[in-house]
């Protein structure tokens, strides 16, 4: 009798154990409560730092380069005796406070490259929202420094988007009409065409006979590459951001249009 009882018990335990094991073999996935990341103006520094830490280790993908190997400086550990990023960020770029420097390195990473590293960091606005970038800044500041990111920074950066180099928001239309681009992208402010526009830069009339298509393209993307004779005092005036403001098709449309203006 006891033999039967034990056998039945063994069968029951075996079956239950088997199902439990099957459920354990599958990689475990827990469904978290979605966080209401509403970092309004009343947000506390603690909340920002906590959110930033998650971004740093998660959605931001920062740890892929920072903190591993030699691709990028270590941020949350000591770097060449200068302390963690929060301690050294205020002195990196002369005249730039910690907060501004960190925000710049996240949004315009090529603006300042730490010596000894390659310019490989992507513009984080492609992956993160403004709230998230500010949260990441707050987290980095907290690593050895004082957190001074506030709700106002987040609120301020939202309208500042339009002025930022990466064209975001409705400023970017899809038109391929070069004349429309002429006024829309602000070329009209400096270059004259058909009697319209300012006289800061060379006129666009007959530009095709002076420059080749390749030269025009290079000039738009990298304005510092050369300066037209007679405009030396205006050298460096042309914004270097048109390469980002135009889509490839728009750029080509504009270049072809200008090269044909003989």
């Amino acid at each position: 009798m006891w033999k039967t009882n034990l056998k039945v018990l063994a069968i029951a335990l075996l079956v239950v154990g088997f199902y439990t094991t099957v459920a354990h073999i599958i990689p475990q996935l827990q469904s978290e409560v979605p966080e209401a990341l509403a970092l309004g103006s009343g947000v506390t520094p603690e909340a920002l730092v906590a959110a930033g830490e998650k971004i740093y280790n998660g959605a931001g993908g920062c740890t892929a380069c920072h903190g591993l190997g030699t691709r990028a400086p270590n941020l949350i550990t000591d770097y060449k005796g200068q302390g963690a990023v929060g301690a050294r960020c205020g002195t990196r770029k002369p005249g730039m406070a910690c907060k501004a420097y960190l925000y710049e390195s996240l949004t315009q990473p090529q603006a300042y490259i730490v010596q000894g590293f390659d310019p490989i960091m992507p513009d984080m606005r492609k992956q993160l929202s403004d709230d998230q970038i500010w949260a990441a800044v707050a987290f980095l500041e907290s690593q050895g420094g004082e957190v001074d990111v506030t709700g106002e920074d987040i609120a301020k950066s939202a309208p500042a988007k339009g002025a930022a180099p990466a064209p975001t928001g409705p400023a970017m239309t899809a038109t391929l009409d070069p004349v429309a681009l002429y006024s829309e992208k602000g070329c009209i402010g400096c270059h004259q065409m058909d009697g319209k526009g300012g006289a800061v830069g060379p006129s666009w009339d007959h530009i095709g006979s002076r420059r080749s298509a390749a030269s025009i393209r290079r000039k738009i993307i990298d304005p510092k590459s050369d300066t037209t004779k007679g405009f030396e005092k205006f050298a460096g005036m042309m914004p270097a951001t048109f390469g980002q403001m135009l889509t490839a098709a728009q750029l080509e449309a504009l270049v072809t249009f200008l090269a044909n203006k003989k």
């Binding site: 996935l29 998660g58 606005r125 992956q127 929202s129 409705p170 970017m172």
Partner: peptide, 27 residues
């Protein structure tokens, strides 16, 4: 894009950009 995935979509795996930053609603 990738960053907008919920946790079970392991957002940091996906390289899909957040296109709302670049494209309009109609696009």
């Amino acid at each position: 894009g990738g960053p907008g995935l919920p946790r079970e979509g392991t957002p940091w795996n996906s390289a899909m950009p957040v296109w709302e930053n670049y494209l309009t609603e109609d696009e």
